[in-house]
Design a protein around this nucleic acid. Structure first.
Lengths: 123, 123, 123, 123
DNA sequence: GTGGTCTAGACCACC
DNA sequence: GTGGTCTAGACCACG
């Protein structure tokens, strides 16, 4: 069962996107693997303090990308292979790294400063 | 006149927020200073390919934070001092660093990997 | 449920103001009372042939005057008491009478002519 | 020279419309007649405390309805005849009376009450 | 279904 | 030309 312990809500982007991203990051990290079970809509929505519909939307999108399969009994399992995992990893890294670098350059921060900053906020 | 050359559109967060952040990052970087002129709504919206209203919203929020002064029919100028600049810088660094670290931890990336990643995408 | 049967669109003043006025007039008339339910944005906007946002704006202003209470996902109800009702009635009468008298005087119409005119258009 | 003594600014409808209406009401009232001179854009805008462009817009619309002729020397004269005057009168009366009656009916005011109200606010 | 927000385009008043 | 507002349509989160 996939835990949502590290999940923290940001604002700006839609919640269902944040949930989707969180799961994909888990896949990229290797902590979410083929066959892993996702919490039910009801349980996860309670855990995150959002509406079940919002969770449902994230799950539906995962299904459309064929990363998730819902079986009767309301249980949902991840369906992954090496290719999918790699695609997700690339997609995420590219996106995140870009936005980080983008932000820092706009702030006129040097590579070295950037590193120190990350170091400081790591904990 | 403030240039928006480095501005690149991300998706996820609202456009007016991205514009707002871009300007604040310029302030934090020191490239946007007290008395600097902002492009008009029309000019900037054409430059970014968005609706003038979207730019208007970003500018209005700046004005509510008393970082911008604009009179009807006249141009818009930044109103800054050391205190405001510092506040913005702290706010941004905190926010950006947090989200970066957050993303990377969710992906199970080590501090070292993070550094290499930033290094790679810097150019 | 408040009906908008008597509502007819004028032009000149903003639509959201006309909606706001219509509701306030109903309050002043006593036909809209504490606890009455307002049509949803969608329903009313379809009924009036305008955009849901236009209705939304009127409703938001009512809420800022604490005449309406609405929760997300739930219906909207009027919140009235004697004091509020009286304030609205005074505000409207003053405003309407003023503009009527204003218009007629500008047209050089005598009090008697004014009466006859109103009589004529009453039906 | 047409005086704008009775003119009072309302809000809601565009200013240029209010100016247009004011002049038309004068025509309907018979106080503005064929050949009468209108104040220059500059003078009237100063008198009303608005931008010359706003006055210009009202004048332009009058010209498009062929109710006004601007000569060199910046002087403008009304061009009226019985037919035009009647058309304006009907248009205005219909509009004003309708909106008055409309407002009062929405407020559940009887014909008699309406009369008393107008009487009261006449001064 | 509900209310709320974001983006879009047209218009107004001002310089 | 400038800033500001009104209307419009699509989308999000919630019940």
């Amino acid at each position: 069962m996939i835990s949502f312990e590290e999940f923290t809500m940001e604002d700006g982007s839609p919640i269902y996107m944040q949930i989707l991203r969180y799961i994909k990051r888990g896949v990229a990290a290797g902590s979410i693997r083929d066959g892993d079970e996702l919490p039910s809509r009801r349980v996860l929505s309670a855990r995150l303090g959002v509406n079940p519909n919002t969770v449902q939307k994230a799950y539906r999108l995962l299904e459309e990308e064929e990363l998730l399969r819902s079986h009767s009994g309301a249980k949902s399992y991840m369906v992954l292979d090496g290719k999918k995992t790699e695609r997700i990893r690339d997609e995420l890294l590219e996106n995140d790294a870009r936005s980080v670098v983008n932000a820092m350059r706009q702030m006129g921060i040097s590579k070295d400063e950037a590193l120190r900053m990350i170091d400081k906020y790591w904990e």
